[in-house]
Amino acid sequence: MNDVSSHSRAQVEPPAILVDLAAEAGVRFNGSNPWDIQVLDSQVYRRILTQGSLGLGEAYMDGMWECAALDELFTRLLRADIEQKLTGMARLRVIGEALLQKIVNRQKRARAYEVGEKHYDTGNDIFEAMLDPTMNYSCGYWAKADNLAQAQIDKLDLICRKLELQPGEKVLDIGCGWGGFAQYAAEHYGVSVHGVTVSREQQKLARQRCEGLPVTIELQDYRELNGEFDKIVSIGMFEHVGPKNYPTYFDTALRLLKDDGLFLLHTIGLHRTTARIDPWINKYIFPNGKIPSALQMTKALDDRSVIEDWHNFGPDYDKTVMAWWQNFNNAWGSLSDKYGQRFYRMWKYYLHCSAGFFRSKNGQLWQLVLAKRNRPGRYYSVR
């Protein structure tokens, strides 16, 4: 396993093409700004040129470069679309990725549990250390909050109010995580919740946390669901559905929803439509994931559902992710023996590039409230 200390600062000059690309974002190699890339092994240049963002990320995991302000580095690179320009030089690979997205259904039922095994089953100790006490692994709502725990409680309550939850209602939670929403809604709004997840570790802990409440947690893909529900919620799961499956996903949700019900969808959104997925994120964090664009979502929803409300609070995800990083970093002393230095660098890279993704506004956070066209009455938006 490589470590930063095993590398000496590189003396080789970076290729001019990389210097020019970095300069477009206001970034320098071995510069004096905190967001500049400090090269410790000159092989990093070759890895970036030949593998793009995958090479950049793996080189960081291998300790080949450092940066004092990773979040600011990624914010600048993403604002300037550097990664897109870099991968554009490897034209054949980009074309191959686009064709693969069109031909292959990465999120088909047979692959549904891969992201659970790869990411969400990493270890409950990691997530318990990083997340707030409600164990919410999605964007908090910081309109009035001044800390992560309050931001997550405010998010949960916002969702409950948007859904107009009433005591005794039956709620479906698609992608229930560690049961944060189910526990909150059952305790504070008197509803029963049926949650489904593709992660065994999530299921185990969610059942423990919701013990004694009218909550069931099952290991199940959304395509396997049956029944009828007053309300449906899906928080941070839609990113794993994939564009090829959007029609099936929405048809399933609407089939399960009562005619007078409401469906709240909480998802990361992309500022433009693209067939590309980030190869580093796909390999190390979220296999088979694909963030939707507004165009892809509205196309799938057209003639299926009424969009009663569309709320964007993307900047709140920047604050959420950086709070996760502080929690994770503070707890690392108790986790390091089990997970090791390469995992630490992978997780640090993941959280900081996520912060830059939202800070650059390439990433959005959307909450949509959906209903069937024949739902009676008027819906009043909640903030």
Rank of each mutant, 00 (worst) to 15 (best):
S192W: 00
G177D: 05
I174S: 03
Y184K: 04
D154C: 13
Y189A: 14
D154G: 14
P167N: 10
D157L: 09
I159Q: 03
I159C: 08
Q152K: 08
L172D: 00
L156P: 11
S192I: 04
L158M: 15
F181S: 08
W178Y: 04
G180Y: 00
A151R: 06
L156H: 07
A151N: 10
S192V: 02
F181Y: 10
E169K: 04
C160V: 07
D173C: 03
V171A: 03
G180A: 06
A186P: 13
K162F: 08
D157Q: 14
H188G: 12
L156R: 02
Y184C: 06
A186C: 12
G168E: 10
I153P: 01
E164P: 14
C176L: 00
D154Y: 11
Q183I: 13
G190V: 10
K162V: 04
A182W: 01
K170W: 00
A185D: 03
I159P: 05
Q166K: 12
A185V: 07
R161P: 15
S192Y: 00
L158T: 12
L158Q: 13
Q183D: 11
K162H: 07
Q183Y: 00
S192K: 03
E164G: 07
D157F: 07
D157H: 15
R161E: 14
G180T: 06
S192A: 13
Y189L: 10
L165M: 10
E164M: 09
A186Y: 02
K155P: 14
K170A: 02
K170C: 09
A185C: 08
R161S: 14
E169Q: 15
K170L: 05
V171N: 05
D154A: 15
G177Y: 03
K155W: 06
G175A: 09
G175I: 02
A186W: 01
C160M: 06
K162T: 07
